[in-house]
Design a binder for these strands. Structure first.
Length: 710
DNA sequence: TTAGGGTTAG
């Protein structure tokens, strides 16, 4: 909200404002233009410089409004500087210019306006205490020309060796994105203090030059400047924010056991570290995968607030550890010190979605309603995602219909929900509605839509959309989209088209693209092409277990036993092991996990006797295990698993049958693909026990009801 | 007087 009475409130209270006739004071000459900013790129700047009357300036002003240049802070800033500091200056006009700038930061603008008034009305030249303030204001506004002019004025006022002013300028040029100028000022600072180093390090870190930041970080050590918490927090949080993990890990190692007096100890020794520093440290450790260290930091925190808890929960949640995330959430639920806030709820919902923990998800939904928390788009998206991933598409759609505000995240989550439940047409319809609502789709939206087309055989529609992505919607197709297209063509049997598509792609094929082709070959039994795709896939991803197994199968089937033994040797050499199949089921808000042949559950005995009962029942209705699945599996482990009827999903379903009420649907989440005879068996079970069974695997949902699969 | 800083979704 902006209003004139607010905007000028500070300025109008200034005694100088009582004067009606502006004083004419000698103005400093404009500082020469920075050599790194090209005047040709902004011809308007030359025009501004050439003006020698307010009338001319007004003409330029009008032109800037017309072309939109007025709405860039540095061109607008230049206009303000020109109108306020030029020989024909008029502060009233500068104010008018200021008045037209949309949503200015009131405080910083007021600082500048006050400064300009000071220049107009005060007979003393601003001193070394004035400049850091106004340069800071210019930094916040990223008003290059304004700050640049201050730089010139400071030089003119013989203040250019003051370390405070120089440090401010380093920060200023950095925040305007001019690292060269920032560095030039930094180098010229003769008596650098820790703030000088920190400013420049931060400029580099935020300006996308982590290498230079690190170099400087080392430079501090050489110069015997002791880094402080600002150094550490700045460097570490910048690299984790950008997920520049290599850099982050480097810094982390440096901190942990590095040569420079051990920065970790520095952190431990810091006297005045506040909760921000602690949380940054915690977040940094967690994001770098040092969970034990993160937990350690968390436990050592003298005071923990909700943000610290959130940092821990979200770090677990986003690094494939949803179970650990929910464990922390449970601690929070039990503790009286802190209450979950909107961040916590979003993280916990997301973790519930990943685990298929619908009881907890529903609890959060109720919590939100009970506490009258107004849904924002983050909540809405997470709720839709949670219900969809827990298998309750109706509930997900209910949330979607219940909210008015829908951003691209909300739309994309709903589209993804429809897609994962196999509703291709509905996905496309929703996508059209999204366009009608004038919400611009992004890369993720397209991945979801293309995925739906691929899974439901809507090849023409998918292709049409894919080729519209860039020209119509301005979304450049990425690896995932190309992989979707390969999957779409391959799945529908157009294997040669898929190969041609890969050859013509403007990007180099990645492992996931060969993986998509491989999947299609498996589906359509094209052994020759599968062999080629496998080889390419293994070149790029030599540790891909699935590709090895498939290639082994191909060689075994075609009798190429020498190759089989060669591959087996490779696998042993690489120490490759299959990712263990794991199924989870949530009962009364607790997620139980089962591995193959698992007997660690406390009700293991009951589960296995239930399994026997199920097997007997299945036999009695004439079920015969399909041995053909065995032929597809070369690995002994898989054979054993299959032969012993101990697939982990079977254990999970058996547990569901003994522990849940007869009307409750059994929801099982599998970390891999549902395969073998588990699908037909689950179908039979849903009929025999009159239970709804919902199986989620890596690729989507299988709903079983009354002996049928949707 | 100057530098920095924590947690959220598809």
């Amino acid at each position: 909200m902006k209003g004139p009475e607010l905007r000028y409130s500070t300025a109008e209270r200034h005694p100088a404002c009582l004067s009606t006739t502006p004083l004419q004071v000698q103005q400093p000459k404009p500082y020469p233009l920075s050599p790194t900013v090209n005047n040709d790129r902004y011809p308007i700047l030359s025009l501004i410089n050439q003006c020698n009357s307010t009338k001319q300036l007004k003409q330029v002003h009008a032109q800037m409004l017309h072309t939109g240049l007025f709405f860039y802070s540095f061109t607008a800033g230049k206009l303000i500087t020109a109108s306020a500091l030029s020989p024909f200056s008029s502060l009233d006009y500068a104010r008018q210019v200021f008045d037209q700038i949309p949503q200015p930061n009131l405080f910083t603008w007021n600082t500048l306006i006050l400064f300009l008034q000071l220049l107009h009305h005060c007979e003393h030249f601003p001193d070394k205490f004035t400049f850091p303030f106004v340069i800071k204001a210019a930094s916040e506004l990223k008003a290059f020309w304004v700050g640049n002019a201050f730089h010139g004025m400071a030089i003119k006022g013989s203040l250019s060796s003051d370390v405070y002013i120089l440090n401010s300028l380093v920060h200023f040029y950095g925040s305007c994105g001019d690292l060269d100028l920032a560095y030039a000022v930094f180098v010229k600072t003769l008596q650098k203090d820790v703030v000088s180093w920190n400013s420049m390090i931060t400029d580099f870190a935020q300006g996308g030059c982590p290498g230079e930041a690190l170099e400087l970080f080392r430079g501090m050590e050489k110069e015997n400047v002791k880094p402080n918490d600002v150094t550490m927090v700045g460097v570490l949080s910048n690299c984790t924010k950008k997920l520049d993990l290599e850099f982050g890990r480097w810094v982390y190692m440096y901190m942990k056991c590095g040569s420079f007096e051990d920065a970790k100890r520095l952190f431990d020794k810091m006297q005045d570290k506040d909760i921000f520093s602690w949380t940054t440290m915690l977040d940094g450790c967690a994001k770098l995968g040092e969970y034990d260290e993160a937990r350690h930091v968390f436990d050592a925190m003298p005071r923990k607030d909700i943000a610290a808890l959130n940092a821990l929960i979200s770090a677990f949640e986003q690094n494939g550890k949803p179970k650990e995330a929910l464990a922390v959430f449970r601690e929070l639920q039990l503790s009286k010190d802190a209450k979950p806030d909107e961040f916590t709820l979003v993280c916990a919902l997301s973790a519930s979605a990943k685990l298929g923990a619908m009881d907890l998800g529903r609890w959060i939904d109720v919590y939100i309603k009970k506490h009258g928390i107004k849904l924002n788009c983050h909540h809405t998206t997470s709720l839709i995602d949670m219900y969809a991933k827990c298998g309750d598409l109706e509930k997900a759609l209910e949330v979607y219909y219940s909210v008015e505000r829908k951003d691209v995240f909300v739309w994309s989550a709903t589209i993804a929900g429809l897609a994962m439940h196999g509703h291709g047409r509905a996905t496309l319809d929703l996508f059209s509605k999204m366009l009608e609502a004038k919400v611009k789709p992004n890369a993720v939206t397209f991945t979801n839509v293309l995925c739906a087309c691929s899974h439901t055989g809507l090849v023409n529609e998918g292709q049409r959309l894919f080729y519209q992505m860039e020209p119509v919607y301005g979304v450049v197709p990425g690896e995932k989209h190309y992989a979707c297209m390969v999957d779409m063509l391959g799945r529908s049997g157009l294997l040669q088209e898929a190969v041609k598509f890969i050859e013509k792609m403007p990007i180099l094929p990645t492992a996931s693209i060969w993986g998509a082709l491989l999947g299609a070959c498996r589906l359509h039994g094209n052994i020759e092409l599968a062999g080629q795709a496998c080889s390419r896939l293994l070149e790029l991803d030599p540790r891909n277990h699935g590709a090895y197994v498939l290639l082994l199968n191909i060689y075994a089937r075609t009798g190429k036993w020498d190759r089989v033994s060669g591959l087996r040797k490779n696998m042993r050499d690489f120490g490759l092991k299959k990712e263990p199949g794991c199924n989870s089921i949530e009962v009364n808000g607790i997620v139980h996990e089962f591995l193959v042949g698992d007997n660690s559950h406390k009700l293991s005995k009951e589960i296995y006797s239930k399994l026997d009962e199920i097997t007997a029942k299945l036999k009695s209705v004439g079920y015969v295990p399909n041995k053909s699945y065995l032929l597809q599996l070369v690995e002994e482990e898989d054979m054993k698993e299959q032969a012993l009827n101990l697939h982990s999903e079977k254990l999970a379903i058996a547990y569901g049958l003994i522990s849940m009420g007869p009307s409750q649907p059994i929801r099982v989440v599998k970390n891999l693909r549902v395969y073998g005879d588990c699908h037909p068996v689950a179908k039979l079970k849903s009929g025999l026990y009159d239970r709804e069974i919902i199986l989620r695997d890596l690729y989507g949902f299988h709903h079983f009801r009354g002996g049928n699969c949707s």
